[in-house]
Design a protein around this nucleic acid. Structure first.
Lengths: 189, 189
DNA sequence: TGCGACATGTAACACGTTACATGATTGA
DNA sequence: TCAATCATGTAACGTGTTACATGTCGCA
C-alpha cells in the first residue's frame, strides 16, 4: 500500500480537494507518483477513516460542494514510519521502451511518430518543471534556496522530474536519429 | 496486458527459459520492464497457448529439465500490431521520491542511508549497462555500430537504462548533499 | 445546444505481489 | 550440513484500470 504515502506526501504541501489532487496525480505534475482520480477518492476515504487525514466540507453555491483534506498528526507519524522502513523496488514501465527493444523486427514508421510525440511531450514537461522550480525559489539562487528554505522536498523531487524528462527527450531524439539513418542506409545497401 | 509484449520483445534476442527470463526481468537487466518470476511463467504459458511463442523441452541430467521459448511468426506479428497501436502512459513509481517529497517533515537519518544505498546501486547498474553496451558494439565505435549492426533495439534501450541510472545516481548524491548541509546548518541557526 | 471544467463516486475486471510448494545439484 | 542456484509452478490477496453513474456552471 504505497499510494497512501504518496497522497500524504502530496497533501503536506497544503489543503487539497480530491479533484485537485487528482489533477496533480493524473496530469503528471506529480513527478513522484501517478494515480487515477477514482483511486485517489478511494484512498482519501480510507485515509480519513483511519484518521490520517481530516476533511472539511466547503459549501459552494456555483459549483458542487467539495472537501479539502489536510494531513493529521497521525498522518505525519505514518509518513515518518514509512520513511524509516525499507523502500520497495522502484518500477519503470514504458511501452515505448518495449517497442524500441523490438524495433529491428517491425516497421518503424509508427514508432518514429510516437518518438516524436514523446520528445515533444518531454520538452513541455521540462519547461513546466523549470517554471515550477523558478516559482519555488523565487528571487534566490538554487543553492541559497536549498540551503535556507523551510521546505525543500518538492523542489528536490521536481529536480528529479526535470532530469528524467530531459533524459527522455534526448533519448527519443537520439533513437529517432538512429532509426532514420538506418532507413536511408537501407536504400543504399 | 502489456507484460506480454515485454516478454515477446525480450525473447527476440534469443531462446530463453522461464528462469533465464525471470533473472533478466527481476534483477533489472531488463531496463525496459520489470516482472516477478511467477508472472513470467504464467505469461509464457498463456503466450504459448495462443501460439505467440513456441517452447521446446531441454532434457538435462544434472539439473531439472527446462523449456526454451522462441517467438513464433504470429508473435512477431503481435509485436508489429502493438508497435502500430498507441502507447499507454509511462509510469514511474518510487518510494524514495515520496520520502524525499516529505523530507521536511521527517527525520532524515534513515532517508540519507537509503539515498546512499540507492546511489551505490545506481552506480553498479551504470557499470553493468556500460559493459553490456561495450559487449554489443564490440570493436566498433558506437556510431558505427548503430549505423551498421543488424539489431540495435537492445543497444538503444540499454542507452536509456544507463542514462536513467546516471540520473538516479546524480540526484541521490545531490539530495544527500542538500540534506546534510541543512542538518549542519540547523546546528548554527 | 453542446462541450469542458468542476466535483464525487461505484462496480467489474485486469494485473501484480506474496506466500507457499517441490526437488535436485553444487560449493562453502 | 547449510545456503545458493537451477527450474517450475499454484493460490490468495492486494492494487490499479476501465467503464459507468450523476449533476451543475460557464462559455461558444
Amino acid at each position: 500500500m504505497a499510494l497512501r504515502h504518496a497522497v500524504l506526501a502530496a497533501l503536506l504541501e497544503g489543503e487539497l480537494s480530491g479533484y485537485q489532487l487528482a489533477k496533480a496525480f493524473d496530469a503528471g505534475v506529480a513527478n513522484f507518483w501517478h494515480a487515477r482520480p477514482q483511486q485517489l477518492y478511494a484512498e482519501l476515504k480510507r485515509l480519513e477513516s483511519q484518521g490520517l487525514v481530516t476533511g472539511r466540507e466547503i459549501v459552494q453555491h456555483n459549483r458542487p460542494n467539495k472537501r479539502l483534506f489536510t494531513v493529521s498528526p497521525a498522518g505525519v507519524e505514518e509518513l515518518r514510519s514509512f520513511t524509516r522502513s525499507a523502500s520497495g523496488p522502484s518500477a519503470v514501465r514504458d511501452d515505448l521502451l518495449v517497442k524500441v527493444q523490438a524495433c529491428d523486427h517491425v516497421e518503424t514508421g509508427a514508432l518514429l511518430e510516437e518518438l516524436g510525440e514523446r520528445a515533444e511531450l518531454a520538452r513541455t514537461k521540462v519547461e513546466l518543471f523549470e517554471s515550477l522550480l523558478a516559482a519555488m525559489r523565487g528571487e534566490r539562487s538554487e543553492e541559497e534556496h536549498l540551503a535556507r528554505a523551510e521546505r525543500v522536498g518538492p523542489y528536490l523531487t521536481c529536480l528529479r522530474g526535470r532530469a528524467f524528462e530531459q533524459g527522455n527527450q534526448q533519448w527519443c531524439e537520439r533513437v529517432m536519429g538512429v532509426l532514420r539513418a538506418r532507413q536511408e542506409g537501407r536504400g543504399d545497401g
